[in-house]
Amino acid sequence: MAIAIIRTLILYTVIVVSLRIMGKRQIGELEPAELVVAVLISDLAAHPLQDIGTPLLYGLIPVLTLLCCQVLISALIIKSLKFRALVAGKPSVLIRKGSIVQSEMKKNRFTIDELAEQLRKKDIYDISTVKYAILETDGSLSVLQYADQLPVTPKQMNLQTDDNGYAVIIVNNGRVMEDNLKKMGLNEVWLERQLQQRKAGGVKNVYLMTVDENGRIYYEPKEQKA
């Protein structure tokens, strides 16, 4: 039993580190080569976990080999566009200037129903409003609608808007995010003053506090226990 636990911990650590080294993309939308690695890793790791008669190295070495291949292939993909096209494929234009490109639909084995479903997921219910639809190499659909279908922006309306900028978390569930505080050019004294103004009664009573580039603060105290 102890062997199974130790093996699980080792494999878990190796896989988490491997996925971390492979990069964030591995966890999100997967391209073909990345999908192969993700599927294989889970299967390879399962065998030595289920059968303690199989050496752990039989799981670890293939996982590490896949990690090496993935890192090297990713580097080659960045360096060579041809290699990228070979491994990841090219995006396919399914709708061009409002017209469905049937040859591309057929080539990608993409049905009208699937196209309509993907568009609905983007809140587009009328296909005639789409100017371009591109099937990306990770299988997602990018859509550009006709200009008269797009939401009006403040710029188009010549309206002045305040740019809030990026709101940074200063207090997260009673803990001060000191790095974020420094990045925003603030300090503990400023934080203490803000908490006093809100009668927070200390950082430990704050659930969330953010501040944006304009100094605007969002404050949420912790719920009081009944």
């Binding site: 070495i61 590490l64 090496c68 291949c69 890192v71 090297l72």
Partner: peptide, 19 residues
């Protein structure tokens, strides 16, 4: 590039160890 180099060397070491 350092990561790729490290990985390449590691892969070569794995192959050597397997032989």
């Amino acid at each position: 590039m350092k990561k790729e180099l490290f990985v390449g060397v590691f892969l070569a070491l794995l192959l050597t160890a397997s032989f």
